[in-house]
């Protein structure tokens, strides 16, 4: 039966104001039930304060085999990282 239901990706926001994080996937006939199921499958131990669900088919992903052209060029460009600024002590941890 579950194979007839579409797949949903579940994102949960934790307790401390962090961003929603991908926690897994599940099957459900529609968005409302996907939220219900996500509550039961992923938040029983007080993991979160907010749930997002999105149809897996609505996610467009980069192609793993294009990893090289997509990401390698940034390796050799240290000037893209803001490591050349002096941060005043008072600012503390950034």
């Amino acid at each position: 039966m579950s194979s007839e239901w579409p797949l949903w990706e579940v994102f949960i926001r934790g307790q401390h104001g962090l961003n929603h994080r991908h926690v897994g996937s599940l099957h459900a006939p529609d968005a409302e039930m996907a939220i219900h199921n996500a509550r039961d499958v992923y938040t029983r131990r007080n993991e979160g304060v907010s749930i997002w669900v999105v149809r897996s088919t609505d996610i467009t992903a980069s192609v793993p085999s294009e990893k090289g052209p997509l990401f390698d060029p940034s390796n050799s460009k240290v000037y893209r990282h803001p490591t050349f600024f002096d941060v005043p002590e008072e600012v503390g941890h950034m």
Partner: peptide, 12 residues
């Protein structure tokens, strides 16, 4: 239960 998700919900 008829689906894994329902199984977990009922057990909860």
């Amino acid at each position: 239960a008829p689906a894994l998700e329902e199984d977990i919900a009922l057990a909860n």
